[in-house]
Amino acid sequence: MTTPNGTFDPFDPAGMLKGMRDSNMDAWAKMMVQLVNTDAYSESTAAMLDAWLTTSGPFRKVMETSMAQVMAQINLPTRDDVVRIAERLTNIEIRLDDMEAKLDELHRPAHPGETKE
């Protein structure tokens, strides 16, 4: 709308739109921040989340159960089987790390500057 030297430029529609945008954005942003910081917003978000989880939960459980049955029928591991294996692997990793720590301790010189054979 205005040129760099402050004069009005009727042939710059993009500049005009940008000016309008900038003048409105701040007010809009502040209004939205105020809105999301209200108790009503907190309550409605929590209620929506609750409703979504409560209604979709049973479907998800049915899907998981039937999928587990299908996988068992075709002799393939289920998600739970894979999760259990992954958990066991983590436990093995922890044991290995403990052993490494003990080995480090054994190899550490008793006094700084001394090298252990």
């Binding site: 108790d39 907190s42 978000t45 929590a46 989340l49 989880l53 998800r60």
Partner: peptide, 24 residues
């Protein structure tokens, strides 16, 4: 509990973290 959106939303009694974790 009113400092910041996270605090306001998550400390609201209706916000149920246990339900989220139980489902997801």
């Amino acid at each position: 509990k009113t400092a910041g959106g996270f605090s306001r939303w998550s400390s609201h009694p209706a916000f149920n973290a246990d339900l989220i974790v139980e489902n997801l």
